[in-house]
Computed example of a mutant assay.
Amino acid sequence: MVEETRDQLSRLVRDRRAELGISLAKVAQASGDPDQVTPTWVNRLEHNQLKEIPSGARLEALGRGLQLPPRQLARAAGAQYWGLTEEYSQDDSARVIVDHLEDMSEPERRQLRAMIEAFARNRQQE
Rank of each mutant, 00 (worst) to 15 (best):
P107D: 12
R71A: 10
P70C: 04
D99N: 12
Y81D: 02
A61G: 10
Q90A: 13
A77Q: 05
E86S: 00
M104P: 05
P70A: 03
S93I: 09
H100W: 15
D91N: 15
G56C: 03
D91T: 11
E87I: 11
L62I: 05
Q67T: 05
V98F: 13
A74F: 09
A79R: 03
M104Q: 09
A57S: 13
A79E: 14
Q67E: 13
R75C: 03
L66P: 02
I97C: 08
L101F: 09
R71D: 04
Q90Y: 11
P69E: 15
G56W: 10
R58I: 08
R109N: 04
Y88I: 00
D91R: 10
A61F: 04
A77G: 03
S89I: 06
R64I: 03
G65I: 02
L84F: 15
V98T: 06
E86W: 03
W82H: 12
D92S: 09
G56I: 10
S89D: 11
E102R: 09
L62R: 02
M104C: 09
A74N: 08
E106Q: 08
G65M: 05
L84W: 13
R95H: 08
V98K: 02
A76F: 01
E87F: 14
D103C: 07
A57D: 15
A77E: 05
E106M: 08
V96D: 14
G78D: 14
P70F: 02
V98L: 10
S105M: 03
Q80S: 09
E106L: 11
Y81N: 04
A57H: 11
L59H: 07
P70Q: 04
A94F: 08
R75K: 12
Q67K: 14
Q67R: 13
L59N: 02
E108S: 12
R109P: 01
R71K: 09
S105H: 01
D103A: 15
I97K: 03
E60R: 01
D91K: 08
L84R: 13
A61W: 01
R64Q: 12
E86I: 00
P107E: 08
D99L: 09
Y88H: 04
G83W: 02
Q72N: 06
W82F: 14
